[in-house]
């Protein structure tokens, strides 16, 4: 595996391999070891053409714990916001000797373009492209779910997971649908019909418009961020009505199975898709998701960068 652009790049075995690697790294990170020499001398560029402090910091922490050199290249003040093309930027990074580029971009497919056009020779890691995918987020979500709910199994077989909210515009949802189903979970998408894409019926997930009917039957509920501006684009009448039908509040939380967990990729709109008491409740693993993010991103960097060039045909 040279790049991580989409969950479709992974087999179930690849994904489990990354989760297992992250498990071992987590154990090391929990101990006193804070820095590993594994990627010493390698250069990783964080190319963030769209604001995302938490994902950037997570990748940066992961790279630094593996002793890689990190160059941050972020949107504000970067040439990308001044109309320089992705191609020119990539060629600049190549000239700097980047071994890997972690890219966040507002255009769907930007990571794949960077990887396909051979503008640069390093690995490309998609840290979120438009409304397409966010594979490292899905891996950390699967990691979190496995840790809490899999009872020691490698995969997520038999688990039922609800993804709730703005599926249409969510790269987190796309990557999670692909990964969670790849790992054997049943995924149910819960959203108003306006926030589901035409063609969702071809996804490996079921669809429900009735959040209350779904809640008692799932092992995890993953809430998606709903942006306020969706209202003006007529996706729903107003925030109050959205919350009434699709917000996770303490009343709804009390209908969940006793073992079920609440997840959110952040940043949250407290009071819109999730109430503050739910976000801060004992069921919430939202803060832990952030911790797991570093371990998963270390695992991704390890798998992509630690080994030498693969033989043709392998993996």
């Amino acid at each position: 595996m040279r790049h991580l652009l989409s969950i479709t790049d992974l087999t179930a075995a690849d994904a489990i391999g990354i989760l297992n690697t992250a498990t071992e790294l987590a154990r090391i990170n929990e101990g006193q070891v804070k820095k590993l020499p594994t990627l010493r001398g390698r250069t990783i560029v964080n190319l963030f053409a769209e604001d995302s402090t938490r994902t950037r910091i997570s990748f940066e922490a992961a790279a630094k714990r593996l002793s890689a050199d990190v160059i941050n290249f972020s949107a504000k003040g970067s040439s990308l916001s001044k109309g320089e093309s992705l191609k020119d930027t990539a060629q600049t990074l190549q000239a700097m000797g980047a071994d890997a580029v972690v890219i966040r971009h507002s255009a769907s497919g930007a990571a794949q373009r960077l990887a396909d056009l051979e503008w640069m020779s390093g690995s490309v890691i998609n840290a979120g492209d438009g409304t397409h995918e966010h594979p490292s987020q899905a891996l950390l979500d699967a990691f979190t779910i496995r840790k809490h709910l899999s009872k020691g199994a490698n995969d997520l077989a038999g688990l039922r997971i609800a993804i709730v909210g703005d599926v249409l515009h969510s790269r987190v949802a796309r990557s999670n649908v692909l990964l969670l189903s790849l790992l054997g979970a049943d995924v149910v998408l819960v959203a108003p019909p306006t926030l589901l894409p035409v063609g969702v019926e071809t996804w490996p997930a079921s669809v429900s418009y009735d959040f209350d009917a779904v809640i008692p039957n799932v092992d995890a509920i993953m809430m998606l961020r709903v942006q306020q501006e969706r209202m003006t684009d007529l996706f729903f009448p107003n925030a109050r009505e959205y919350s009434r039908y699709f917000g996770l509040n303490s009343e709804r939380m009390s209908a969940m199975a006793t073992h079920a967990i609440v997840m959110h990729p952040g940043p949250m709109n407290r009071g819109l898709e999730i109430s503050a008491d739910v976000a801060d409740s004992a069921r919430s693993v939202i803060v832990e998701q952030v911790t797991n993010g570093v371990n998963i991103r270390m695992a991704i960097l390890y798998v992509l960068l630690a080994g030498g060039p693969l033989e043709v045909g392998s993996n």
Partner: peptide, 12 residues
Amino acid sequence: LRLRPPRTIMPT
């Protein structure tokens, strides 16, 4: 590490 494909990390 760079001489071979990535190895699986074993438990410590």
